[in-house]
């Protein structure tokens, strides 16, 4: 059997989800943002929620997400996505409402909105892309930047006396009574991608079931900000990010 014989719709096992638009994404080669976008498109399709989804976009590299996923989007002021999501979900409780946010957006400028939305237990899902850096603006240090990690504003590596400790905001959010599901995943291998898909699906289902706030952190790479190839970024993430941000469920109620 030749390759051309195999390439037949009857034998299809994987294709781009229809909810993901054909327009090419602006993300750098190898960026984790794209993998998570794909998963969101697949899940919304699986849940048959395309017409009932309101997604809230951040400021950061994810700002243009509305171009790539064919659902309703509202882009929020920097860090304020959970506040906008609160309003959307309270006004339209039958909608699937989620935010899509980076670590600078969620854990720096938006810390207050993040904590209070989670503490109120808003029935939203928060997809949190933690690449340990401000990717969009040129790789500046974020609260999540690791000790010793180089960034454009910590060229010799982050130090505690000067910059404080890295912030594990997901661990903090798991302490709040309003959160029902808090998990940390990654998308660097097929197994990790599958787990993240399950996690995001569960977070979306929780939102629809009114169980409270769900947070899916995806420990991610930013090869441009980290100044490594995508492959080396994945290895660096496993070696350095995972010990500081270990994968797994922090809370599942």
């Amino acid at each position: 059997m030749t390759t051309n014989d195999i390439i037949n719709p009857a034998n299809l096992v994987y294709a781009k989800a229809p909810i993901m638009n054909d327009v090419p994404m602006h993300y750098c080669p190898g960026c984790s943002h794209g993998v998570v976008h794909k998963l969101i498109a697949e899940i919304i399709g699986d849940m048959d929620m395309q017409e009932k989804t309101i997604a809230i976009a951040p400021v950061g590299c994810g700002v243009f997400a509305y171009k790539y996923l064919d659902v309703d989007w509202q882009q929020a002021a920097h860090g304020r996505a959970p506040a906008v999501a609160t309003a959307a979900k309270r006004l339209l409780p039958d909608r699937l409402v989620f935010t899509y946010q980076g670590d600078g957006d969620l854990a720096a400028i938006g810390t207050a909105e993040t904590i209070h939305a989670c503490n109120r237990g808003e029935n939203i899902a928060i997809i949190f892309i933690n690449n340990g850096i401000y990717g969009m603006t040129g790789g500046q240090m974020a609260p999540t930047t690791l000790g010793g990690m180089k960034s454009s504003t910590s060229p010799n590596g982050r130090t505690v006396p000067l910059n404080g400790h890295p912030l594990d905001i997901t661990k903090l959010l798991a302490q709040l009574d309003g959160t029902c599901y808090v998990t940390r995943q990654a998308v660097h291998t097929i197994a990790a991608v599958r787990k993240t898909k399950k996690a995001i699906q569960k977070a979306f289902e929780n939102s629809m079931a009114g169980k409270g706030t769900s947070i899916v952190e995806v420990v991610s790479t930013c090869s441009s900000g980290w100044k490594m190839t995508p492959e080396a970024s994945n290895d660096w993430m496993v070696e350095n990010m995972f010990p500081a941000y270990p994968l797994g469920d922090l809370k599942n109620e």
Binding site: M1, D5, I6, I7, N8, N11, L12, V13, Y14, A15, K16, A17, M20, P24, M25, Y27, P29, G30, C31, S32, H33, G34, V35, K38, V187, H188, T189, I190, V193
Partner: peptide, 12 residues
Amino acid sequence: VCPDACITVYKV
């Protein structure tokens, strides 16, 4: 793992 959804897969 493709971040850009470039790959379609067939199996038989």
